[in-house]
Design a protein around this nucleic acid. Sequence first.
DNA 1: CAGTGGTCTAGACCACAGG
DNA 2: CTGTGGTCTAGACCACTGG
Lengths: 233, 233
Amino acid sequence: MNTPTFRNWQSVQSEVLRRIHAREWKPGDLIPNEAALALEFGCARTTVNRALQAVAETGLLDRRRKAGTRVAQQPVAKATLDIAVIRAEIEERAQKYGYQLIARQMDVPPAAISGAMRTSATVQLLHIRALHLADDAPYALENRWINTGVATAAAKVAFDTISANEWLLQHVPYTHGEIAFSANCATKMDSEVLNCPLGSALFTIDRLTWDKDAAVTKVRILFAPGHQLRTGI
Amino acid sequence: MNTPTFRNWQSVQSEVLRRIHAREWKPGDLIPNEAALALEFGCARTTVNRALQAVAETGLLDRRRKAGTRVAQQPVAKATLDIAVIRAEIEERAQKYGYQLIARQMDVPPAAISGAMRTSATVQLLHIRALHLADDAPYALENRWINTGVATAAAKVAFDTISANEWLLQHVPYTHGEIAFSANCATKMDSEVLNCPLGSALFTIDRLTWDKDAAVTKVRILFAPGHQLRTGI
DNA sequence: CAGTGGTCTAGACCACAGG
DNA sequence: CTGTGGTCTAGACCACTGG
């Protein structure tokens, strides 16, 4: 059990993870500092640093200057979800993608929308409703408001063949956004479009997208019953 | 407009992000290679490398040896969710946490459970049902199966004062897991425990946790109506 | 084959925060 | 004040893969 050789930071990372899983380093424990580990692993401190930073990013290690590196007490699981364009999501499963525009008009939004987007309560936004289909079956219902004051080009797009979902990603830049996941009962209108029983539990994604301090778009996507969003940890 | 100085990899990252957002580098574009950027930014190639790797992790850049670095065509949004222990989640919002054990017994699980956990269809697992409360109101209903063949110590724990959720994280190691998010209608039993209308849409998390190739535990958590899981992108 | 990103190294200096 | 992690540099070699 004398120093096996560690050739790259990934292998150092594996060894660190092994020790944590094997409880050689228990939750709350202070682990040796970078210099000591570099010596033990027979590599440069930079390499150890890279490995520990990677592990810390997953939440399993807690690093602080001078205080050293500790194994996290309660490893907060970080689940990384890939939120792709809906078309890509469907085609990746080798299903046929379909798209239907339901409505497209300029509207003064309800207060909840203009409030969240911080637009004037009287200004009109572009309101889009559309249905995404997988193998001809309803897949998701998109209900979107677009701030044409920011995404000016959107005002001239019909959105009858390309979804706003996809067009915006390709043409309108954004700096950051907020996502929320929830569950909602299907209203009468939802159930008719998605062809499901009234009151079905629908997995819901709400997204609000910003460019600097101006809201670009706010969208709610209701998925057909049974939809799951999966990932690994 | 000649080279401002970039002192660390984060500042290089900012500049790269700025150019992408400003469409100076458009989706699909090949950007200059690391050596060229290092020259332009007046820093070492290592520093540029670190910055580009970080941006690539967010999905905005696509890097391939020899092919170079390109701006992603459809930036897949990576949403990182922090799945904390339920107690921590509640206390972080300055609410009072409460816990009630509903049932604890050894049971032969339904085929769906033993199948997913790859345990023998006849072997008994520890079955736990419990309610988490926030400020005395029902918050989430936990329905869990524990493989006592792997988490042997769990067989002796009462789980009447500490939730399985929390105890397992502290005492049982795991190597990886799967998470799925969905929406489900409240059954009669669910609605009674969560004190909500029958058929309410409940946000649901299913988690299956492995230690190497042995399933440790499988849990379904049903959240009270209105629950949202939020994050930024 | 050759250009690109991926990584390592040794040494250095710095920023932060614990004692 | 001092130990710890955070980062930079210059140079080097390697691994992959496109043309």
